[in-house]
Design a protein around this nucleic acid. Sequence first.
DNA 1: GGGAATTTGGCACTGAGTGGCACTTTGCCG
DNA 2: CGGCAAAGTGCCACTCAGTGCCAAATTCCC
Lengths: 251, 251
Amino acid sequence: MKKPPVPKTTGTELSGRVARVAPADAPKRATKRGSTSPKSASRSAGSVTPRLRERKKDATRRALVKVANQRFHSKGFEATTIDEICSDAGVSRRTFFRYFASKDALAFPNRAERLEHFLDLLEGAPETESALTSMRRIAQIFAREYAANRDQLIAQQRLISSTPSLIAREHDIDRDWENAMARAFSRRLVRGRDDDLRAHILAGAVIGVIRATMRHWFEMDGRVDLGKLGSQALDALQDGFLPMATAVRRT
Amino acid sequence: MKKPPVPKTTGTELSGRVARVAPADAPKRATKRGSTSPKSASRSAGSVTPRLRERKKDATRRALVKVANQRFHSKGFEATTIDEICSDAGVSRRTFFRYFASKDALAFPNRAERLEHFLDLLEGAPETESALTSMRRIAQIFAREYAANRDQLIAQQRLISSTPSLIAREHDIDRDWENAMARAFSRRLVRGRDDDLRAHILAGAVIGVIRATMRHWFEMDGRVDLGKLGSQALDALQDGFLPMATAVRRT
DNA sequence: GGGAATTTGGCACTGAGTGGCACTTTGCCG
DNA sequence: CGGCAAAGTGCCACTCAGTGCCAAATTCCC
């Protein structure tokens, strides 16, 4: 009771804002091999990829995601404590936070990978292609990919949609995509004033349209053709929502 | 040490999910006078607004927002403790949470009022007006209002933009607006299949465009005409981003 | 002034997230 | 093989947000 011994210094204020323990949440990045990672390069040779250590880390990470999602789906996200997840995975609480920056992060495994994929596609688009055409093409690629993982994505989305804090995280992710898109568009547009603004406006519109489309797809439990849906949505965007914007009471 | 006496039942699991203490975060709602509030109407006459109790509550709320923002701006959002805010405002911790559902909520005073205002305008729009025309008109109204509070809004935005958790909350608010918009559009569109989807797509695009516009305005420290900016952005949306979508390298 | 309805404060408790340190494992040498 | 450094892990203590509960204070209304 009373007071715990001593809070170290004065505590309560101006605590250092350093915290360089382990940022976590970094994408695995590996898998793609090569990459000339500086490592420590103590001597030189090696390169037989003996990273038996990496294997273990990866296994732990996967285990955490797996047991966590089991609990999440059976008793809900908020009702699941990190302690439970840790004991299921046979890992200590402290270790958990070395793998994931937060409990939320568990619900978005491969957040980083997906964005990276999107970026690759976006940056790999031919210079001569218009922004909206690129998006149309890329949307088809993702539509196929999403359709292939339909059930898993729907389960994941159901969890997210029913958890306020996860909804917020999802919006963060949308913003990442939007910013990535804006950057790519900006490079593509006529070089001149206001390009940054115009690129952001276009990106904002595209992301908004795509989000609405995804939302609909999820609400239909993925029983509609996502590719066609996305295509139509981008059509609507491209012709200025004519049927919607003007018609108030079509015949 | 050891263990605290008794955690009540078994604790740790299946704790009731009721929590009907005080949702907080409700808009003041008053101020508009009249409104035939049922109150208790004990006698009849009066009408001198004797709610001395309401005054105090309002004062407490304002005080909390005020002292909180002082601290937020001087030492940052995350570094500020709710305890500090409470002692500054002369209120207990427990009371704080009866006024605000979370620390985040402090950074968005009148979140509810603004949305309500938007909803009123949206629902009060003439039936014969197209969705985009309504938005254009409403955007002008908000542009004027924002311009009038420029300095305060910019300070607020600076705080939000520099705090991840507040950015997330801001996105929640955007979503509220988007949903409100979608609902209004849906009522306005041709009644038929897919209206909900189409309304959401349009709303998503509009919100995206508006967000990008606001972002730019804030980045320019409000030194540009927000009304004109919004108007141009909606123009771009309405003609399908023709100059952006097609031109890859204008002459 | 008296009694009911609110409002408030204090207390105890849960759960997320962090820092520090000691201990174990793994990779890498000579 | 034995030893060494670095990376990974476990444990403990601590801070802080948020909530339930109940008693004390305040306000309202007669």
